[in-house]
Design a protein around this nucleic acid. Structure first.
Lengths: 228, 228
DNA sequence: ATGGTCAAGCTGCCATGCAAGATGTCAGTA
DNA sequence: TACTGACATCTTGCATGGCAGCTTGACCAT
């Protein structure tokens, strides 16, 4: 179980442990939007006092994952439709820039990783293994962000994507008929442009790719219940 | 006087008051990089207990303004040269996108505000009033961000700019000979493109503008002591 | 003079108790 | 029945005290 990789394997910090745990539960969907998070309940669950729980919740609030209503309670954030659109706009922006930056860096380990990822993804699509493909899509975007070699970009990107709970949305997106093939074809083209060191083209194409993904997700959401 | 506009004028929350106060002190330069922030000292200064101070410091840590070293102390963050470059890269990215988004919105109140701002700035440059011009530059960029009408973009933009302590840097930048005139000319051209609803052009030009500003700042920094 | 050891003092971390605001329930009244 | 008011019971916010880890500087041995 390779987890999100924050800093250290053993963090003597209770608050970080709680924050990491809750974050995973939220972005994985184990905790749904609107769910109440009581300090005392969480404290009992984790077997610690309210103080570190409280600090963890505060951190998650700043990250935009929960909403703390004073003297009322803490709830898992429920992004509005507008916010989801805003988040996709940011995703488009940041990933586009990441493609441009990565293309400018030339031969780096991440490039090989991306080639390998695309090859594996081809196989997964061919085999119709959507679960595996969804994981590879996640990895593709992660490689891209790391390959951009900009810590601030990576940090803010992760925060924004956590708000989207993107892990769930990817499945929604790929559930659209034919989306997997289109998506994989777009990954190919982005990779080609990065290899060709065409930063401008890579940025443009990456933006289109994210926008297509955005539309696929919204279409899938309309099929199911609305986000808010 | 369009101020930063957090939430409420009277917030019964001690932690927010402390966080806001410290944030202002840091971005204004009243607190310099590396300065130690002791929980007990701050608690005494503000006349409250350590708990809300602690929560405020935690918030500032997540915003990247302070660094909490466990069992050691809390210090005002000192961005490395690399981080400053990363921050400018993000600034370029976000403001470029803001220009594009604002251009796409057509006739909005922010457009009038920006016209008015540029006119005032012209006068300030002509009068050689660099203090007034610095303030108008800040306002120009703020109008741009608000005009983009994307809350997520605005939030993350402000966090990143706070890390830069941009208020101080603007003066450094404008101290470069001829920079004020160049800067103002660039603002003019961006505004023209926004009026013409040329989003792509506005984004490209805004990026160039930020990059020029970046160079001016770095040149000014080399003249003074290094950031780190 | 120099290198290593240790103890004191500082720091943030956590647990606990109390206070105050918000919410839902339920009795009382028109 | 519809509505208003008070109250019981949640919730978080703040204050305080004890604890564990890191840093630093003095002191001792070489």
């Amino acid at each position: 179980m390779v987890v999100a990789s924050t800093r250290k394997l053993v963090t003597a910090n209770f608050q970080e442990q709680v924050a990491d745990g809750l974050r995973q539960m939220i972005i994985s969907g184990e905790l749904g939007p609107g769910d109440a998070l009581s300090e005392v309940n969480l404290a009992e669950t984790f077997g610690i006092s309210r103080t570190p729980v409280r600090e963890a919740l505060k951190q998650l609030q700043i990250e935009g994952l929960v909403e703390i209503r004073s003297r009322v309670g803490t709830f898992v954030a429920a992004p509005s439709r507008r916010e989801v659109n805003e988040l996709f706009e940011m995703k488009q922006l940041l990933e586009g820039a990441a493609a441009r930056l990565m293309a400018a860096r030339g031969n780096i380990p991440e490039l090989e990783a991306m080639k390998s990822n695309v090859a594996d993804a081809d196989a997964a699509v061919l085999a119709g293994d959507t679960v595996r493909y969804a994981e590879l899509v996640r990895e593709f975007h992660e490689i891209l962000i790391i390959g951009a070699d900009n810590g601030k970009l990576a940090t803010h990107y992760r925060i924004l994507m956590n708000q989207l709970a993107y892990g769930r949305l990817v499945k929604t997106s790929l559930a659209q008929p034919g989306r997997s093939l289109d998506s994989e074809r777009e990954h190919h083209r982005v990779l080609d442009l990065i290899i060709a060191k065409d930063g401008t083209g890579a940025e443009r194409l990456m933006r289109q790719h994210v926008q297509a993904s955005h539309h696929a997700v919204m279409a899938g959401l309309d099929g199911a219940g609305p986000t808010n």
